[in-house]
Amino acid sequence: MAMLQRKSRVSDDIPTASMADIAFLLLIFFLTTTVFEEEKGLSIVLPEAAAEQVEVSQKNIIHFLVQPDGAVVIRRGESQAEQVVAFSQIEGIMRQEISNNAEIIAAVKTDPNAPYGHMINVLDELQKASAQRISLQLWER
């Protein structure tokens, strides 16, 4: 009986020495797992309202015409030849154009009734192709 009594007297209190460690572990756990709502997106700088009109040679422009059904028509410079492409082809085409002409401007003309998502798909492809000169316009026919 004497042995039993001694044992229970020793392990009687809750060990508090490790409390701080537990608290710190929790702290570190939350610090590393917390995901903050971050600001993310496709950035672009709009032309200023007061900007003067700059005449751009037609051979430096490639038009991407975004239609309401999601089809994209490419029209190069002055030629009226049209090429219908899918979103996934745009990146390759744009890379090709940039390597041919570093001055090329991608003019994205979107139909007024086309969903915004389609325009973003085109813009996404252009930014993936690291196009620097992008112009966003409304496609007025």
Binding site: I120, L123, D124, Q127, K128
Partner: peptide
């Protein structure tokens, strides 16, 4: 919309 080229905005 979803985009591959999505980038974090540092501001």
């Amino acid at each position: 919309p979803r985009a591959d080229a999505t980038q974090k905005q540092d501001e």
